[in-house]
Amino acid sequence: MKRSDPRLIVRPAPFLKSAMTTQQAMLDVLYALIPVIGVSLWCFGLGAILVLAATVIGALLTERLFSPASQRIPLRMDVSTLVTGLLLGVTLPPALPLWMAFVGGAAAIGLGKLVWGGLGQNLFNPALVGRAFLMAAFPTAMTTWTPYQGPEGLFTVYSSNLAVPLMNSAFDGVTAATPLALIKFQHETPPLYPLLMGNIPGSLGETSGLLILAGGVYLLLRQVIDWRILMGLLGSVAILSGSLYLLDSAHYPNPLTALLSGGLLFGAVFMATDPVTSPITPKGALFFGVGVGFLVVLIRGFGGYPEGVMYAILLMNAATPLIERITQPRAFGRGGDT
């Protein structure tokens, strides 16, 4: 090698890279969440945004404090943790005490991700682990819903939001039943239109079916989420709840209501499609989606809770390694369907 030659970097082929990066995929999820967050401000006021801020701070702080230094991603690039915090936040009741939201964010990252070995290693969806943790720790606060506020209540901060940690505080006078609770306990069918628009009681980002679907379409177009999971899930819920409705329309909601109510759409678009905790194989993804849908209908129809999306997804997360094992793709030229 002559002195005049440039210093050449030797690194392996290929030398071309597709434009999509993991950072970009995370950012896409963030963009898809923005309308959902916007609607929660509109429906439930500033208190909802404070809950989101508390989960995000809890998540980011836990990541900073407890992730091994060798794996730590610089804060400005750490969209993944931010997304986990936000995903947890939008599944919480708007009037949740902020300190609980903070603990939930910490649990999501700590128990949902870091103990497994960090990004990409966890078996369960971290945001849902955080939510399940809160559900077990604070069952009353997690199931106390506030009514739709509308633009007049834009700056509402619920007094329960500001509850002092570990002190039992009374909740605001006004509470409201979610559509799913109405179905389950009063056997009333809520009207469809509010389910689309979001002006109903519920978790702060799960109420507007329309905006969640818009986010889902964006993520599908960007190929960030797998259509097989989404379609498998929505399809199986539609078919199974449809069959139940046909059998007994007094007790069970019609399939459209079943699809639009509760956390189903949000769970289908943002939670079940988490690539880390769903099967990587195409067949497995479809299987996974159908499984989640089946469990949702089962829990909603026959379980003790009005809503079952969270546990359905967590249960299928646990089944993911097994699903993958039996759905490995058939290699090219290795028998099968040719």
């Binding site: 999509m20 990409g120 960030v224 880390v276 769903s278 990587i280």
Partner: peptide, 11 residues
């Protein structure tokens, strides 16, 4: 970055 199991390599 760590693998996030997005499945693009399989596709």
């Amino acid at each position: 970055l760590p693998c996030i199991r997005c499945g693009r390599c399989l596709a």
